[in-house]
């Protein structure tokens, strides 16, 4: 409840012209945005781009947010939509050979400090990229972002039954992939 009030107050201050309130919101949510985008796209550079896009959208559209849902859910909706759009664009570009995909994979600026963590992240990312996007998004939101099916349904616009089925398939696939990796 305190968090909601805090988001509400920060949003209100920002809309009243306090730019630092937006910075505080960005600091609060940027890591969640980054990890969701990174798990969806499978690499740092794309995730970094999505974080910037989401912050720009947030900055421009915050005035239209009416607090009918939590700000957290709203930010996730934007992040998830942007990530999916980004993946679609990327697939299209790679189909027409406009992007060199190998260039964007695990580039020099990987933002994880120790090698062990880096390897763990890489392993999971590799597995996640083998899932279809529909299964990947629900798996990430359920297991990493710890959202309830109701929240995921609100974010993706899909019904809970479909989400559960997608998650179930994703989970089985991941179990298999982890076993043989």
């Amino acid at each position: 409840m305190h968090e909601l009030n805090n988001d509400f107050e920060l949003t209100k201050s920002f809309l009243n012209g306090d730019e630092s309130a937006f910075n505080r919101l960005a600091v609060k949510y940027h890591e969640k945005i980054y990890w969701h985008a990174r798990r969806m796209t499978g690499n740092h550079l794309d995730a970094d781009e999505i974080v910037q896009e989401v912050l720009i959208v947030l900055y421009n559209k915050l005035k239209t947010f009416e607090f009918k849902s939590s700000l957290y859910t709203w930010i996730f909706t934007i992040t998830n939509t942007r990530s999916i759009n980004y993946l679609k664009k990327k697939n299209l570009r790679s189909f027409f050979s406009l992007d060199d995909i190998s260039n964007s994979k695990f580039e020099q600026n990987d933002m994880i400090d120790d090698l062990e963590s880096k390897q763990k992240v890489e392993k999971i990312e590799k597995v996640l990229q083998k899932l279809p996007v529909k299964q990947r998004e629900v798996f990430i939101m359920r297991n990493f972002d710890e959202l309830s099916y109701e929240e995921i349904s609100q974010i993706t616009g899909k019904n809970i039954g479909t989400l559960k089925a997608n998650h179930f398939h994703a989970l089985n696939k991941i179990k298999e992939l982890v076993k043989y990796d």
Binding site: E31, Y34, W35, Q52, Y59, S117, K120, V121, I124
Partner: peptide, 29 residues
């Protein structure tokens, strides 16, 4: 599987990058 995911979930991005996000955002804006 869950303990593996939990392990990954707790990894943080490094501080410098974290701080650069806001700077980069302001620059882009």
């Amino acid at each position: 599987l869950h303990s593996m995911l939990d392990d990954v979930k707790n990894i943080r991005i490094n501080k410098n990058y974290s701080e650069s996000i806001i700077t980069e955002f302001r620059k882009r804006k």
